[in-house]
Each structure stands twice: as structure tokens, then as C-alpha cells.
Design a binder for these strands. Structure first.
Lengths: 156, 156
DNA sequence: GATGTTCCGGTCAATGCTGTCCATCGCCGC
DNA sequence: GCGGCGATGGACAGCATTGACCGGAACATC
């Protein structure tokens, strides 16, 4: 993982469909050497996959919300976690520090769908005791592009 | 935007590099008809781009945190928002409901970097009055794959 | 300390595939 | 019946992939 790899990763996060020829120019290598590096990054797991980045509103999920959750005493964490997997509008679920057990990130069509999920799935099932919901009023910035930092010193 | 388009979008979110031939099989169309649909989805803005999905830990950002922020009375929202843009470890920034003005999602190398940003950039600059930081202890689920819902009725 | 060997990573060239373009056909609405 | 949108199929061009060859660094041997 040298600075060439990092340049490749930065470029691929911004545009993963521009082709190896252009990527090779960024990397300063030949096309095949660039392809070899990309392949290695995939095998190592640094590149987990290739995704189309969609407009949430265009696919019917304009509403963004987070739900903080506390489980009932004695409730099963594993059961709660597994229960969330099938819900595809649950984009994220993290165990968090602070007064809450978990924090979920949701994308839904509207408030009725949000309420249905929180009241129905979370509270009724899944051993959830208390919840607190935060709505996104507007989004200033939202990206999945990670900062690709040098391992220690040096700044490209 | 019919059910074929939705199937295409679902497939492209899971694997955007498998090629048109395989995508055409999913869509049940010829290769060129599939390509035409993908092109239209890009032009319409439904597909915003093509990204490599990276492992955060592998690129040096293992720590995930959210920072809730309240601006000082009279502070400029626009200035705050614009000030965040250059920080690439700020993945998200939303104006939110509830007691806080904004909620930021951060990916950083470790606690020192997190503290440096919150204390230095947010509190000292940018007109921030109060902050509250939530750390991710573990991540159960984290995806950018959106549910591609039918516009109204019907379920594929 | 010098030299030979091996391995890793790069370039270059050829091949196979795949995405793109175009003409044609079928279907639906007017 | 006519016009337009969308899908089909084939031909072409461009690109990714593969293999052979080359160079340098690390290690072992003399």
C-alpha cells in the first residue's frame, strides 16, 4: 500500500467507471500494471466492491432519519441485530457509546413508513424499550468517499 | 421507471462491475437495450456515479463517530456549512430535528484525530457552541445500498 | 565484500471480449 | 393508418486481459 495505491483508491472512489487507461494516467503506470494493482487491492479486501451510486429521492427514499434504541433489560442483542438484517431501509446499525444501545440510520419513503417501522418492528418486536428519532431536515454533505490517509508520515 | 429499471438498479448497487451481459440476463433484455436503460438512468440523475466501495479500516479510518453540534446564537449557518466542505473525514453533515442544529458523521484514524477536529476545528472556529460526540463501538450493518421501492403499489 | 540467484513488479505486444453504434423491426398511442 | 418510442441483432472499435520479457532489490553463497 504505497502512494500509488492510494492515488488509485482516491480516483476509484470518485469515478469507478472511467476505465483502466485513464486510471493508469493517474497512477503514472502502464495499463496492465495498474490493472494488477487494482486486482491486488480487491483480493486484499481493500476494495470491497463496485457500486452504482443512486439518488435516494429518485428511488423513492427522500426521508432520512436516525433512531436511537435501548433494549429491554435481558433482551437478546443477537436477536435484535439479526432481526434488522432483512429490513433494507435500515442502512446502518451501530452499537454506540452514550445512553443508547444502538443507533440506526434509515431511509424511507415518508413519515408513515418511518412510524410504522419504529412503532411496529422496533417497539413491538425485537425487545426495544425506548427509542428516540432524529430527522434530517436538510443534507449539507453526504458521501461515502473515505479519506485515504498515508499510513504514518508523508502527505501526498 | 418501471420494474425492469428497478431490477437494474438493485443489481447495479450490489455489483456495478459485472458487465452488461450479466445485467441483461437480470433485466431480461438484450445487451443493447440494457445499455440504453442504464444510460438513461445516468442522464436522469438516478445513477449519480460509479464508486469503488472501500474497507474503512484498510485505508486508515477505523474509528466512526457522530458529532452533534449547536451553533452560537447569531453564528452564520452558511459559514459553518462551507467550512466543513474541505474536511474529507467529515462524511456527512445534516441539519436535524431535535435539540441540536447539525449532526456530522466522521471517519478518523483514532481518538486523537477526533479530538483534534472537535476541539480545534469545530469549537474554536466555525461558531460552534456545544457539541456531543457519539462513538461507534461496533457496526452491525453499514451499507449504502438503497431500497428501490415501487412508486406506489406492486411488490416485485 | 563481491557475485549469482530468485522473486517481485513493471513494460510491451497480441488476443479475446465487450461495450457501442447503427439499421431494422415490433408495439403502442394518436 | 401513421408516427414515435423502445427492443433486437449484427458489425465495428476500443478496452481489458494475458503472457513473455526485462530490470531491480533482497538474499544466499562463494
Amino acid at each position: 500500500m504505497d502512494s500509488i495505491d492510494r492515488n488509485i483508491l482516491v480516483a476509484l472512489q470518485h469515478d469507478g467507471a472511467s476505465g483502466l487507461a485513464e486510471l493508469a494516467k493517474v497512477a503514472g503506470l502502464s495499463v496492465s500494471a495498474t490493472a494488477e494493482r487494482v486486482k491486488r487491492l480487491e483480493e486484499r479486501g481493500t476494495i470491497r466492491g463496485w457500486r452504482a451510486d443512486l439518488d435516494p429521492a429518485a428511488v423513492g427514499c427522500p426521508l432520512l432519519a436516525w433512531v436511537f434504541v435501548t433494549l429491554r433489560p435481558g433482551a437478546s442483542d443477537a436477536k435484535f441485530r439479526d432481526g434488522l438484517a432483512p429490513f433494507e431501509h435500515v442502512l446502518e446499525c451501530h452499537a454506540v457509546s452514550g445512553p443508547w444501545s444502538y443507533m440506526l440510520k434509515l431511509r424511507v419513503a415518508g413519515l408513515p413508513e418511518l412510524e410504522a417501522f419504529v412503532a411496529g418492528e422496533l417497539r413491538r418486536k425485537a425487545g426495544v424499550e425506548r427509542t428516540e428519532t432524529v430527522l434530517a431536515l436538510s443534507t449539507v454533505k453526504e458521501t461515502a468517499i473515505l479519506p485515504v490517509a498515508p499510513p504514518d508520515d508523508e502527505e501526498a
